[in-house]
Amino acid sequence: MEENNIIISCNNVKKYYPIRDGIFNRIKDWKHIVDGLSFKLEQGKTLALVGESGCGKSVLLRLILGLENVTEGEIYFKGKSVYDLSEMQRLTMKSEIGMIFQDTLAALHPRMSIMESLKEPLLLNGMKDRKQMEKVIIDTLECVGMAPDFLNRYPHQLSGGQLQRIAIARALIIDPQVILADEPISALDVSLQAQVINMLIDLQESRNLSILLVAHDLAVVRQIASDIMIMYLGTIVESGKSSDIYKNAKHPYTKVLLKAAPSISKGINNEPFHLDLKVGDTPNPENPPKGCSFCTKCMEATERCLLERPEPKEVSPRHFVSCLYV
């Protein structure tokens, strides 16, 4: 792996939120939302982050964008630490990252027409020529498969799928090198899902984009991503090439996920639904287990798992698993 090919790299990133209590609002404890994450995103690759709700996926994206500060660890964008940048450099960095937020209706201003919403990132990027601006906007809309007559509409007049495309157009319009996408397809219908997935694949190939995709649907991820990270309670339990994960999963949690994901082929073979988890809630990030984060739900957990924290082990090239018994 060449170093200058890496767009984003995270090194042992941690994010804790304080829990305040009492009349002086003193910090009582910390919520460990992201607890020691390291990964690298290469140019032109799609990296998917899979995990359940509440495991810290969205927070990680916010950290990378600089919307929030890390508690510990380093995030590098093109080799430079995000937190060492000057205000100017930070702005340039933001113009190279496009973000697709999860709730598109909330992400677009209700009183701004689609035209105005799309113009804003261009203005912030210092584009002044009106004609050029219009051309860029219409080109980008075409790119996401929408006609220019949508420009004068307002967000509430569009359907979910159309809004999703506008959100993607808004991320693309500044011609970014990286796209951070937070569940871009989970709210869409089947036929639209396919359209958006195809669009992301097309864009990636034509522009050599890097995509960091957050999702919980394993089938969708399989279609797009070249590399996958499985996240549980703020830590990455398994990461590797998508074929490694789907065909040769090692971590108990990944196995549970693959077994639990519904699919047509399982239906054809009359496989029942199956969930190999211990009963109970996912542990609270306020008070994470001392040892392996998955030990409270794992069927194969032993006493050692409760006490010892597993380190990522490389089981085959670039396939890392954090489990004591692999």
Partner: peptide
């Protein structure tokens, strides 16, 4: 047929792109 073609699967598909149903 269009629906089944456009559903992402847990298994590998023969083509990288899904065949989506055009229009709305």
């Amino acid at each position: 047929i269009g629906l089944i073609r456009s559903v992402p699967l847990l298994e590998e598909r023969k083509s990288k792109r899904l065949k989506s149903i055009p229009g709305f």
